[in-house]
Design a protein around this nucleic acid. Structure first.
Length: 569
RNA sequence: GGCCCCGUAGCUCAGGGGAUAGAGCGGCCGCCUCCUAAGCGGCAGGUCGAUGGUUCGAAUCCAUCCGGGGUCACCA
């Protein structure tokens, strides 16, 4: 049940009826007509811009349209009042029954309340994390993981068919470096002094890899040339690192549907096929790039390269796909991988990159645009860096200390393209300064209400509460609470439309705030307490409101991947 | 220098064509014989970086500029 959608339909139906009566010209486009919560609650429950939007095409004064529309809407039983205001806004007040009915709808629909059919089952692929398999995840990856996971849950809730995917960059030079680093740890495991040269990975996390190599090869690879062991150690080490990363993701509560390997693309002809496809479109050529404008690198020299004409699809310069030694650049398998996603039949692609990869956005979009003939949109979300206060902690420690739920919520309290401060002290604090706690506390209070209510002998199943006499919910503060709940389905659609899961976190904070406010009013006005001594009918209605709030909090936290707590400890 | 992101209250940030621009923190003033005060209410605080433009209307869209960050041809 989406009240805003319902009333919007009422408005557009009324406009159509007015056109049929000749009050408005026929054939007006209603696409720009919006029904929204007004900025100022004093303006009513919902406002529509219909009159202002239609004034010009209808050739009428906005207020004239608004008045005609108001008169018509006022006849509908759902509408308690319609007033023209300002330059032509039409402010609507809904009858109390609507809000009471909404509470019932939440209890009836449960965690499905707010689900949307907006995605219409379209297949979307969300690629995220995709950290190189050269070490454990760090805090920066965590944010990408959380954003991608929450976005996936959000899109699924809004009606998309979602595939979560991890692209393993195991085909380039960085895994050779990994292998050489692991080899040194292997020597170390055999009692030799490791030589961690400049450019190798120095991290302790490779020590167990060295041990494993010793267990497997004994001393047989010592003093052997790298040509003997490189490929094998590379595979072993990167597999072990992927295990590490899968463990990190699991600790965070992030699940992937598909792991795709870059290395697996080599030798299958897929890269060649993708490039040939582009060649067939006349988008591959041999050429020389201009030096970067303004700043020419010291060692720049004109060089003939195999280039992708990405400028034909919106990029600023064309991009090399092949090195002079005839091997592919990193970009070529990336193209093939995205081509693969297109061929698998996805209707939409989403990539979540670290902000340091911002320079690849245009070329990646150009490739997808070309390879799908403009059919498949690719949205790339850049996730800004995380500033960790308390420094240098590897991921497991962060999650172990703060908890996956807290970590996840905090990572979503910022838009993806803004840097995020992750302060341990704050995050673990049990106070209203900590948004995670604040939202969880509201849920805990709701559970407390349900407990008390059950002790008072009231049936608190959702089915029973939905049957309560909700007309009892008439106090303005209670109606306000219901109005906030009514925004949930609308928020889901807005967040899904923009691929912006952080909106859910902000909404939950507002919802919790509304609830804490209502709770506290019970201190001064005992008639606003949820459990009313000796009055089962009144209690049931009020508890129903609390429970409905709890349902929406749970649904919202579910999208963030955060477990709602029953009580604070 | 090119491209991308950011610039909104003292601080951290929402809002991204609509009516007097919001929240939290910090500051000041209030609220516990009462379901969890781990909370709630109120006050003070703004030329929405600047300047032009688009239109009935701009924090929001466009252009130019100013700050801050990222990135920039055979590294992924």
């Amino acid at each position: 049940m989406n009240l805003f959608a319902e009333i919007r339909t009422l408005v557009t139906d009324s406009l159509t009826a007015l056109a049929a009566e000749g009050v408005l010209p026929a054939g007006l486009d209603h696409a720009q007509v919006a029904v929204e919560p007004p900025r100022d609650p004093a303006h009513g429950d919902m406002a529509t811009n219909a009159a202002m939007v239609l004034a010009k095409p209808a050739g009428m004064a906005p207020r004239a349209i608004a008045e005609a529309l108001a008169a018509r809407l006022a006849q509908d039983p759902r509408v308690a009042g319609a007033e023209v205001a300002g330059p032509g806004f039409l402010n609507l007040r809904l009858s109390a029954v609507m809000w009471q009915g909404l509470v019932k709808a939440v209890l009836t629909e449960g965690l499905s309340f707010g689900k949307s059919g907006m995605g219409a089952g379209r297949k979307v692929n969300v690629e995220f994390v995709s950290a190189n398999p050269t070490g454990p995840m760090h805090v920066g990856h965590v944010r990408g993981a959380v954003v991608g996971d929450a976005l996936s849950r959000l899109l699924a809730f809004a009606g998309w068919d979602v595939t979560r995917e991890y692209y393993i960059n195991d085909g380039g030079a960085q895994v050779d470096v990994l292998a050489r680093s692991a080899y040194e740890r292997y020597r170390e495991a055999n009692g030799l002094e490791p030589e961690i040269r400049e450019g190798l990975y120095p991290g302790d996390y490779l020590i167990p890899v060295g041990e494993a190599l010793k267990a497997r090869f004994g001393t047989s690879l010592l003093d052997k040339d790298e040509s003997v062991w490189l490929a094998e150690i590379r595979d072993i080490a990167s597999a072990m690192m992927m295990e590490e990363i899968r463990g990190d993701l699991a600790a965070l509560g992030v699940r992937m549907d598909v792991y795709s390997s870059e290395k697996a693309l080599y030798g299958t002809g897929q890269i060649e096929a993708a490039i040939d496809t582009l060649r067939g479109m006349g988008l591959i050529y041999e050429g020389v790039l201009e030096p970067p404008k303004g700043k020419t690198p010291e060692d720049w020299e004109p060089r003939v390269q195999t280039l992708f004409r990405s400028t034909a699809h919106g990029d600023d310069v064309d991009r090399p796909v092949m090195k002079s030694d005839g091997s592919w650049t990193y970009f070529a398998p990336d193209i093939a991988y995205h081509f693969n996603k297109v061929q698998r039949g996805f209707d939409e692609l989403i990539d979540i990159f670290g902000a340091d990869h911002g320079g690849y956005v245009k070329r990646m979009k150009a490739a997808v645009s070309a390879l799908s003939n403009g059919r498949v949109p690719l949205d790339i979300k850049l996730v800004q860096l995380v500033k960790l206060y308390k420094n240098g902690e590897p991921l497991r420690d962060v999650v172990e200390q703060a908890g996956a739920d807290v970590t996840r919520f905090m990572m979503l309290t910022r838009k993806n393209d803004v840097t995020l401060d992750f302060d341990f002290a704050k995050v673990l604090e049990q106070s209203k300064d900590n948004p995670v706690f604040y939202v969880q506390y509201a849920n805990a209070r709701i559970n407390s209400v349900l407990r008390k209510s059950r002790e008072a002998g009231i049936d608190c199943s959702d089915a029973a509460l939905a049957q309560a006499d909700l007309a009892i919910l008439s106090h303005p503060a209670e109606i306000e609470m219901a109005k906030k709940l009514a925004e949930w389905p609308r928020l889901v659609e807005i967040a899904a439309k923009g691929n912006e899961p952080h909106r859910v976190a902000f909404y939950l904070y507002e919802l919790a705030s509304e609830f804490h406010g209502l709770w506290n009013k019970g201190n001064d006005d005992t008639s606003l307490r949820f459990v009313q001594e000796g009055n089962a009918a009144t209690s049931a209605a009020k508890v129903a409101l609390a429970r409905a709030t709890g349902v929406v909090i749970s649904a919202g936290l579910g999208i963030l991947g955060v477990t709602p707590v029953e009580e604070m400890r």
